[in-house]
Design a protein around this nucleic acid. Sequence first.
DNA 1: CCTACCGATCGGTAGG
DNA 2: CCTACCGATCGGTAGG
Lengths: 234, 234
Amino acid sequence: MDKPAARARPAARVPTEPQSAPAASGKRPRGRPRKTLDERDDGNRRVELVNAAARLFHKKGFDATSTRDIAAAVGMHSGSPFYHFKSKGALLYAVVDEGMRSAIARQTAVLQAAAQAAPDPSALLRVLVHNHFDVLLGPGSDFIPVMLYESRALTARQRASLAKLRSDYEAVWVPVLEALTRTGRLKAPLKLARLLIFGALNWSVQWFDARKDASLDDLADAAMALFLQAPCSS
Amino acid sequence: MDKPAARARPAARVPTEPQSAPAASGKRPRGRPRKTLDERDDGNRRVELVNAAARLFHKKGFDATSTRDIAAAVGMHSGSPFYHFKSKGALLYAVVDEGMRSAIARQTAVLQAAAQAAPDPSALLRVLVHNHFDVLLGPGSDFIPVMLYESRALTARQRASLAKLRSDYEAVWVPVLEALTRTGRLKAPLKLARLLIFGALNWSVQWFDARKDASLDDLADAAMALFLQAPCSS
DNA sequence: CCTACCGATCGGTAGG
DNA sequence: CCTACCGATCGGTAGG
């Protein structure tokens, strides 16, 4: 069956009083009502598709998710996602891109707040680690897991753009890790340390269960205890 | 096109001198030649299929690999893998099962050798870590990466069997990590430490390049330096 | 954004 | 293990 489930169609989409104000003039605003509202609507549908795609790609994987699944999840018919995205792969890239930009924005925000309060590098690392766990495991966090585990389907060009974003995200960690190496609290070679640390964090997507396991703070504490040498002087 | 590539068909499969000895008697060994040889042949074909499946599942992912791809890789026609395996999922489970049994066997072997030479827990961890990297990244290591990153397609029953094998593999690490915790060289809570450590190691599948990066020994050294507190007394 | 549709591909099977 | 095939599903498109 191709009919979308009746469930997700938002009430706002039902054509209630469609052109209340425009109807008064009777001529000018025909084919398209006010431009701003129209664009906002289009944007919302697009955002809905990206959100549904993120959730389904995370839950079932990119290949196992059909564009029909995504359409049905937002109450569209099977061909309609291709009005907003030219291919399934473009939808995947939208998820990945949105996820990285959001992650970078959040990272920048928490780090700025922390750098003013306490410029201690171990405190900064703790903030980075906690934010990373939050981006991976917090509420509504489907985008970065998709980026981490479903990027194989991207084209070479898309992968190159993604590599730039990942590099931006990771670059912030480097001076913090360097400072910790200088003070002897981090022992492994910098590049390998970074890769191993990201692995430890990213793998949590595979096992973390918010209902059963520890809190994100517990996770961050454990990671800090594992990676850092205890403060030497005492 | 459905014709398999002419490439991988082993010369031994070409029906050259099919029943040299049996032809002498002319009666007894009809429908099936000697049983042992026949079974060995079947087993080899089965093993070839599992090896090809492991390589392709690792390279392209389970969903993106067709059973036709696998058949072609071993010089079979498109329907023939189903003579050996009743479904594509059964082939995936064969890969995962074989990978875990091999990993456990290798782990047992290296650990027994190391435990006699030096029962120091940090030396044992180093052996476990190095073996783990070797299983993940060493030559012919497609099975465990498939297990780690493609198991989602398994049935619930298969996943339960796999969980048992994974638990067997991980159980060996626990006493070693406990000993290191007791001597203060491992600081994080045991369960979280184990999960974070496995994450750091398993993630290497995503970035390690044998041509460019460090050796497996370098990796193991870096992991030990990162995870363990420096020996306290000195 | 829907309707109606297409070509391609896929997992799997019967029958030998 | 091959031959010949099937039903289902999928990404995508034309035309409105």
